[in-house]
Design a protein around this nucleic acid. Structure first.
Length: 227
DNA sequence: AGAATGATCCTCT
DNA sequence: GAGGATCATTCTC
């Protein structure tokens, strides 16, 4: 069981090395489709520090119309301007004084829509992720948008970069999720579209920022528990 | 299992 | 000057 892990890490490393980046057309699909279509794909970063690879298991769509939670909901600012760039652009924002979150821009230039990467399953480069995160447990490496960005070494410097080519890209290759669950979004302030069903996750994945069923910080646990 | 809190700083009013 | 698409820790039930 233990030996299998490093064996598979090697396998994922070689897969990542051979993988091809997903092209521009993918990010021109409706943003919700992009959010859904990203699930199961590899997020790869061949950084100077080393390689990190993860399987995307949780995303969140942000829309230009009817979505008060979108950073561009009240027009263009310096901060959100990367959202208006070409599809396949990277939008990173700084939040809560300490964290960065990574979004992939969708839609033609001028239409501010994007998908927030919320969680990945660590597959390769876990030692580097541990170092960047200052945490040992696999579960804590990338099970949340800011954790993911930190584990993959993504910072504000990546703003306006491209996800369409190396060293930072999403693979065409995909492990089709057995089931995808759509839930309401997480973490938005009241009145900011927190009820919109725009969060996508791989139903049975243990690597999510929250369980697939969870809707908000107030998780209800009346129905069924495990054990 | 859930609520409260602190860390910490960019971005906009 | 306030607030935020978060995280980890600590507290209480």
């Amino acid at each position: 069981m233990m030996a299998t892990n490093s064996r598979t890490e090697e396998a994922w490393t070689s897969r990542a090395r051979q993988a091809r980046p997903l092209g521009r057309e993918f990010y021109l699909q409706p943003t919700v489709e992009v959010a859904r279509g990203l699930l199961g794909r590899l997020l790869v970063h061949e950084s100077p520090e080393g390689l990190t690879v993860g399987r995307i298991v949780e995303t969140e769509a942000y829309l230009a119309e009817g979505d008060p939670g979108c950073h561009a909901a009240r027009g263009r600012t310096e901060r959100n301007s990367p959202m208006f760039e070409d599809p396949g652009s990277i939008y990173v924002y700084f939040i809560y004084g300490m964290h960065c979150c990574m979004n992939l821009v969708t839609q033609p230039e001028g239409v501010p829509e994007a998908v927030l990467l919320r969680a990945v399953e660590p597959l390769a480069g876990m030692e580097l992720m541990r170092r960047r995160r200052g945490r040992e447990r696999l579960k804590e490496l990338a099970s949340g948008p800011a954790k993911l960005a930190q584990a993959f070494g993504v910072t504000l410097q990546h703003n306006r970069g491209s996800i369409l080519r190396r060293p930072l890209f999403v693979s065409t290759q995909r492990v089709e999720p057995a089931a995808v669950v759509t839930t309401t979004r997480i973490g938005l302030a009241a009145g900011c579209g927190e009820g919109l069903p725009l969060r996508m996750c791989v139903a049975d994945s243990p690597w999510l920022s929250r369980p697939a069923g969870a809707t908000n910080t107030t998780t209800r646990s009346k129905g069924r528990s495990n054990r």
